[in-house]
């Protein structure tokens, strides 16, 4: 079983979001980067499947050299090897084409991603990759099991319920909680991660189809109006007559 896990390098979930003075780019100053939280569910499930059935787990990131600490972290958690496509991830379509190009070269049985990146929040790349490769994409899935060597059973969240889907390998899936219990790298993992292969490849020629012109931040709230707990019912009156939401 050959599994590819695509990981995105994103600001920590507690990071304060700021932009450069011209509002054209994200200000990385003082920001700690992590593996996209959803991608960790994908990574741990891939490692669990490998532990149960044998095979390899390769992690893939499309990014510049500064993403390598988190690629090494994925190796420390238990991936076997890694590929970094040496390019700034211009947009989802660009990233999807890079992932598809790597996948075409290596014929993976399963390609796992996260549900969405918490910086770009696209919910795009997995379905684009499925479409580019002409294979099923099941997303977002919160359960993934192999029925045998050729078929997987996934549970996918839909609005108001869930769907059970069986697909033939190869396929793409995106992960969400509670697909697995993310792991913290142990000392041995961290030591061996240093010697595991991390291959850097140049991107294939691909166009981005969107470009970010400027960033902005939401307007600050006008301040909170406090209501006396003794007269809590007044809140309901305010919500109807002042806020007009009831």
């Amino acid at each position: 079983m050959k599994i590819l896990v695509c990981i995105s390098n994103v600001p920590d979930t507690t990071a304060k979001i700021n932009f450069t003075a011209d509002n054209k780019s994200f200000d990385k100053n003082g920001v700690q980067y992590v593996i996209n939280p959803w991608d960790e569910y994908a990574l741990t499930r891939a490692i669990e499947l490998k532990e149960a059935k044998g095979g390899t787990v390769t992690v893939l990131n499309v990014g510049e050299a500064d993403t390598e600490p988190n690629i090494r972290k994925a190796l420390a958690i238990g991936a076997d090897d890694a590929i970094r496509v040496n390019a700034y991830p211009k947009d989802s379509f660009f990233v999807a084409q890079q992932i598809a190009a790597i996948a075409k070269e290596n014929s993976y049985d399963i390609i796992l991603m996260g549900k969405e990146s918490i910086d770009y929040n696209g919910f795009q790349v997995h379905n684009m990759v499925g479409e580019l490769l002409g294979i099923p994409s099941v997303t977002p899935a919160f359960k993934l099991d192999l029925l045998d060597d050729t078929t997987a059973r996934l549970e996918r969240e839909i609005e108001g319920g869930k769907e059970i889907v069986e697909v033939k390998l190869p396929f793409v899936a995106s992960a969400q909680q509670p697909m697995s219990e993310p792991r913290i790298p142990n000392m041995r993992g961290i030591m061996t991660a240093r010697t595991k292969p991390l291959k850097v490849v140049e991107p294939v020629g691909a166009e981005a189809k969107t470009s970010i012109a400027a960033y902005s931040k939401p307007e600050k709230k006008g301040g909170v109006k406090m209501i006396d707990p003794e007269n809590a019912g007044e809140l309901i009156t305010l919500l109807r007559n002042e806020a007009k939401v009831l």
């Binding site: 600001p11 770009y120 929040n121 189809k209 969107t210």
Partner: peptide
């Protein structure tokens, strides 16, 4: 160009669709 929500609602980006 449209504006989209990014960084989990912490910011917006003006994105040009080319």
């Amino acid at each position: 160009t449209v504006t989209r929500s990014v960084f989990s609602g912490k910011a917006f980006a003006d994105v040009e669709l080319t």
